[in-house]
Design a protein around this nucleic acid. Sequence first.
DNA 1: CTGTTAGCGCGTTCAC
DNA 2: GTGAACGCGCTAACAG
Lengths: 345, 345
Amino acid sequence: MAKTVEEISSETGFSVTTVRLVINGQSERYRISAATRKKIEDYVALHGYSINHAARSLKLNRSDTVGFVVPDLSNAFFARLMAALEGLCRKRDLLLLTVASHEDPALENRAVAKLLARGVDGLIIAPCQPQVPPQLLNSRKRTPVVMFDRDYGSGIFPTVVSDNVQGGLEMTRRMLQETGGEAFPFLCGHAESPSIQDRIRGFNAACAEHGVTGEGRVLLEAEDSVEAGRQLMLALTGGGRPPPRAFMCSSLLVLEGALQQIRATSGRIPPEILIGTFDDHAMLDLLPNPVFSIRQSEDDLSRRIVDYLAAALSGEVPATPRSEVPVELVCRNLHSSTTFPAKST
Amino acid sequence: MAKTVEEISSETGFSVTTVRLVINGQSERYRISAATRKKIEDYVALHGYSINHAARSLKLNRSDTVGFVVPDLSNAFFARLMAALEGLCRKRDLLLLTVASHEDPALENRAVAKLLARGVDGLIIAPCQPQVPPQLLNSRKRTPVVMFDRDYGSGIFPTVVSDNVQGGLEMTRRMLQETGGEAFPFLCGHAESPSIQDRIRGFNAACAEHGVTGEGRVLLEAEDSVEAGRQLMLALTGGGRPPPRAFMCSSLLVLEGALQQIRATSGRIPPEILIGTFDDHAMLDLLPNPVFSIRQSEDDLSRRIVDYLAAALSGEVPATPRSEVPVELVCRNLHSSTTFPAKST
DNA sequence: CTGTTAGCGCGTTCAC
DNA sequence: GTGAACGCGCTAACAG
């Protein structure tokens, strides 16, 4: 199978032009004779035809590929987002090239350079650093770029993020409602990230609404990891203090660490503790506790991203807009009250 | 930035050969004069150089890319495996092109065809169907292929799988030890898959060792899904019967469904139920129950896969070998006994 | 030590 | 209706 145009041409006796016209379905326009068309079509049906994308790219200076640079593929959120992006790209006959940066700015820069060298038509980046990779600014081709998940405020490229302020606000409000207005700590990993800052902003705003202060209750760690969660909870439960009756975490990793630490100190996880966490996961079902979680919409996010990209690909130059995608508040095992808004605005 | 060789050549006044020799670090071998070298290096340092992979591919008939076709990217196991593969590929300066088949044979075939047309140097496939995609057999280039995760026994391509029989055997043995020899059900989704068949084989063997029969205790569903798990558990707890004191699941999805169903019937998940499941996940920590899980080694699997691929890329033709990678038995919250082998053979 | 050149397969333009 | 020819940027063989 997988003949080239030239092979089909020489083996059927027709010229490459004729063969190409038939293959590309332009036989009507150029009035190829039906007999010729049939012969070529039969040959192709029998032996198959496989376009050589390298040659096509070289000629057209276009690769029909989109690069995707992501901090961590084993993170469920990014994995789901990649799956969504991949589907949207397939619809547009684009191939998604996904590369992980492992939260390393140097790797991120190398990945961007590599994808640019591969001639990607567009680039989607979930950046792990405030600086934009230098290759992006002075490349020959001015490849369209969409930033995503973390807005470091460069303001150069269109950016898509979840509405983290709203997420923090809604979840905190509902949790305060559950605790009857009693304040609780917010355990944050990866504190410098803009998304986390937004989540904190939402938390503080909701606390203020209830007349309590969130300020001293936000605990920070640099890393987003299980270990960070453990450290943060240790700070709360050190010296034999009991675990908090309610707490909120900035990510699932932090939550895991916090719970591990509670178990280490108390021997078990008291099932009445009220838990809030960013990022939803089916396995939160395993907890008997009342749990709130914020679910980002991978579908909406990916749609928005691809829309920006498609616009840029067709030459439109948007005013480097910023899109905030609504998040969803998910509730589990809520016993005290049963009605509440499930969606944020 | 991002000049081509020709541009550098014309703008520095040297020939393309000289420029290329310097860029590729072969100036020693061909004894380029230091002055020439310095001029070229300075120019490159200033303006940069970005190779055009399309042209390179066209010339060399090699793309330095590897295709990866995977049933489901939002499955944590595949996501982790992809991350591992991606790292290994980067070391060899290969780009991994990952495409999802969504468990659809037609999509899988199309993905394979597409990747072949893109000129991938190798193909890694976690197949979702017994038939091998036709394009693989009569392609012009005879692209090296490695099959993975499910061995449908085509016997045509090297195959890498986890040792599922051993996993089923070890986990069942240990669980029977916990239950004191009392048999328990095995809830299986995606029953037709070869991996699941192997897991069942291990289960039955361990049951036989303990003189109990596993036969009637294996419950099957076609899908691997939460819903399947719910159905299977419903079959056990229907008519007001209490949940089993111990059970095993073929995947995390099935486990989730089973637990949901138990909670639906009993209002809670009795924390003394002994649970076994294939595939490990950090969030299993959230369960207070004693839990066994089988953790596949993404590192070992990916290493093995890339080794096969590298061998094939350097022209070696292995006798389509089959590799079984050991799995690890993970234990959580085991109270009754404390010493046991944590690793399978 | 350095320069010239052919050709990879495709899309396009122009000629018959 | 059909064919011939050029050039995209790179590599490799060969020529000085």
